[in-house]
Amino acid sequence: MLLIDIEGIKSLNDLFLQIIKQNLSSDALQWLETKVELIKTEEKSIQLNLTFSHLPRLAGKQPIVLQAEDEAKIAQLLPGFSLKEWTADRLSRVWLLMQVPNENKEAYIKKISGLFIGSEMNEQIALYSTLPFLSYAEEWVSRCEDGIRSNIGTVLEAIMYHNPYPAHFLSEGAWNQLVLKAFFTDKDVNHIVGLNERSNQALTDTLSDYVQERLAAHRTVNPEIYKLIEQKNQTI
């Protein structure tokens, strides 16, 4: 059950590089391309780890400038996904991870997993943003579930907003946790890919309980919860 096929990944890869070229200085771009060559050939993860950490210093953290036609192409290649409001370092990091050689499954998983350990806040954001583009997609489900347990709002948003991975790969239980956590942490659930499609009875039951709990506490209820419950009821 592929989220996106090899051709699609390749197109996105080229498109991302093109956008990076428009948003990075020529020095930063040259540095990145040199590093990628080293990363493609190294056995260990030294260059990968260093490049991944160093990237913001070269790429900068300014929001990327995005052409409307590129935006449209991306939406077509990977529905739900969007680079809107991404920064240059985030996109560069995601693209960098797409260059990690994936022929050897064990080595690949070890390299990517190594980046999660001891990752800095913005590194975590980039790592979770890369989930839809990682090889061996099913292998990252527990990482994704871990990320949903994070209390760092920006990390949660990297998983929840415009990220098609969770809806495609998470079990019902994990998906429901994502949605509940989104409501609990006041996220804008309209950015969640697959919110309506993956709605289910267990989720709406829990959400109904949550509504009662809020009302009993004299707290406000996010109108999106009612919409989700209602939408589910109509499909039954």
Binding site: I117, G118, E120, M121, G153, V155
Partner: peptide, 18 residues
């Protein structure tokens, strides 16, 4: 130590940003 250093660049950084 690893977890402590991770918290300095992760969770604590976010707490502060709030």
């Amino acid at each position: 130590f690893t977890d402590y250093y991770s918290s300095l660049i992760g969770w604590e950084r976010f707490r502060s940003s709030q």
